[in-house]
């Protein structure tokens, strides 16, 4: 009979943590930050069909980095829980806190009970009526849950990105300023010889939870709506004063190669229809 070697629990946990951390650091990053009009998600993602950022519920969004099958699994579980709660009770009874809590339980159980931990890090964000009321939760592979005010950077060289973000983030930023800060922070790492990289619209996945919309607030910003937000600031744009907001929906998205593009990404069919 094969002899089982003794490994201390500390050693096992350390090994698992290291394994998960390595997996997460290999991927590209996602940043989440609050701005005056809501919560902004920006991910480095060349795919238009496989999303790193998505909608969980009316005012709750989800962003994740790591292994795709694992994060998709978690996302679907979150959507299921949110929809079931909203149907059983009321749409207002679905909160980011309870979803984050459920994710923490799941990830914690997987980390201790399974031989391979999930190589994911996720963010559950809820947009409030005012920037101070926004909630950003970070969940790591071991099920630990943190409430982080203002900004979150995950995956890749998250620490370096986070420094850039935190130094320049203000809760009263316009959408344009927030997008530019997010893109600069993502581009601040990974360049040749420490030089910043320039990220194009085709390399980015951008979405917002729009504070002022009733009902489903999640909206992807793509194509023609994204380009002006990324363009370097010119004198006229600054003087104009009006921040460029995402296109008013519901609207059929620009024709795209992916079936996902047909989705309006979130409109509220019952904004004033249901009692």
């Amino acid at each position: 009979m094969a002899m089982q070697f003794y490994a201390s629990p500390e050693q096992i946990m350390r090994d698992r943590s290291e394994y998960a951390r390595k997996g997460i650091a290999r991927g590209r990053s996602v940043v989440v930050l609050t701005y005056e009009g809501g919560v902004l998600f920006v991910a480095e993602n060349v795919s238009t069909a496989l999303h790193k950022v998505s909608e969980l519920y009316d005012r709750i969004g989800f962003a994740a980095v790591g292994r795709f099958n694992e994060l998709e699994n978690l996302r679907a579980a979150g959507v299921r829980m949110a929809d079931l709660r909203g149907y059983s009770y009321d749409r207002r009874d679905v909160t980011a806190r309870s979803l984050a809590n459920a994710y923490a339980q799941t990830l914690g159980a997987i980390f201790t009970e399974q031989s391979k931990p999930f190589e994911v890090e996720i963010c559950v964000a809820e947009v409030g009526s005012r920037p101070e009321r926004d909630e950003l939760y970070r969940l790591t592979y071991d099920g630990s849950l943190q409430d982080e005010p203002g900004t979150i950077a995950m995956g890749g060289q998250a620490d370096a990105i986070s420094q850039v973000l935190k130094a320049r983030h203000r809760p009263d930023m316009s959408l344009r300023d927030a997008v530019q800060l997010a893109v600069q922070s993502l581009g601040s790492v990974g360049g040749e010889g420490g030089q910043p990289r320039k990220l194009e619209a085709s390399q980015l996945e951008v979405a917002v939870l729009d504070r002022r919309r009733p009902g489903r607030t999640f909206r992807r910003i793509t194509g023609a709506a994204l380009a002006p937000l990324l363009a370097p600031e010119d004198g006229a744009g600054k003087k104009g004063g009006a921040p460029v907001e995402p296109a008013e929906g519901p609207k059929i998205a620009e024709p795209g190669p992916s079936p996902a593009d047909k989705s309006p990404g979130g409109v509220d069919p019952v904004a004033d229809g249901e009692g």
């Binding site: 959507v79 299921r80 989705s263």
Partner: peptide, 18 residues
């Protein structure tokens, strides 16, 4: 009707398309 609304929204979110 409420259940139908939830089903459509749920499908849209899970599949990423209506």
């Amino acid at each position: 009707m409420r259940l139908f609304q939830v089903e459509l929204e749920h499908y849209e979110k899970i599949e990423g398309a209506m």
